[in-house]
Amino acid sequence: MEELLHVANLVANKLNSHWEGPLEERLTLQALKVSEEAGELAQAVIGARGINPNKGHSHTWDDVRAEACDTALTALVTLHMLGGDPAAFLAEHLRTIRAKAENWEARA
């Protein structure tokens, strides 16, 4: 997890160093980038399942895994760009999700 957060911080810093526009605009575009990556993940799943009759099996499940990684990293880059302490925010949010998940009822 530490390496993931380090890479997200590195990417965020590199992107920010090339941005000359208003911060709010950069954050908006970065959030949209997460959606773009999620779309590529969906496209890879469709390709791995062979659902599109025009394309058939155009992706592998390794492609899906790679797109999932890209989506996760892009979301973490966004978290870093929002400032504050991304690692602490993420840790606290994960604790909240964990507590909820531990209380989910198992389905029979």
Rank of each mutant, 00 (worst) to 15 (best):
R98F: 09
E36C: 09
E40A: 06
A31C: 13
W104F: 14
G47I: 08
R95Y: 03
N103D: 14
I97W: 01
A101T: 13
A44D: 02
N103V: 10
P53M: 09
G56F: 06
N103W: 00
L79K: 07
N16I: 00
V7L: 15
G21P: 00
N52G: 10
G21A: 15
V64M: 01
R107N: 11
H18S: 13
M81H: 07
R107L: 13
A44Y: 04
E24H: 11
L5N: 00
V7W: 09
E2N: 15
E67S: 07
R49L: 08
T71F: 04
G84A: 02
V34S: 09
L5K: 02
D63M: 08
G21E: 15
E3F: 07
S17I: 08
T74D: 04
E2I: 11
V77C: 05
E3S: 11
A87V: 04
H93N: 11
H18N: 13
R98K: 14
H6G: 11
C69D: 01
R107Y: 09
A31W: 03
S35W: 00
N52Q: 13
A48T: 01
R49M: 06
V11E: 04
A108N: 13
G50Q: 10
N9Q: 11
S58D: 02
T71N: 00
L29F: 07
G84D: 05
R107W: 12
A106S: 13
E36K: 14
P22M: 10
D85T: 05
I46E: 02
T74R: 05
E25H: 12
A48S: 06
A38K: 08
M1S: 05
L41R: 09
Q43H: 14
A108P: 15
R26K: 14
A8V: 10
L32A: 14
A87S: 02
N52P: 05
P53C: 12
L90A: 02
A91V: 04
E102Q: 15
A72H: 08
A38G: 11
E2S: 15
H6L: 13
W19L: 09
R98W: 05
A87C: 05
R65S: 08
G56D: 06
V7Q: 13
E37W: 02
R98P: 00
N9T: 10
A38M: 09
E2P: 11
H93I: 05
I97F: 01
H80N: 09
K33M: 10
T96Y: 03
T78R: 10
E92C: 04
T78M: 14
F89A: 03
L79I: 02
L23D: 10
A31L: 14
M81W: 06
E2C: 11
L94T: 07
N54R: 05
E67G: 06
W61A: 04
E105C: 04
D63N: 14
R49Q: 06
T74Q: 07
H80F: 09
H57E: 01
N9F: 06
V64C: 01
P86Q: 06
V64S: 02
S35M: 10
G84M: 01
I97A: 03
A48E: 03
A108S: 12
A108I: 00
E36S: 14
L4F: 07
H18F: 15
A8Y: 04
G50D: 07
A12N: 08
G50N: 11
V7K: 14
R26H: 12
A88K: 06
V11L: 13
K33D: 01
A106G: 01
E3Y: 03
L27Q: 02
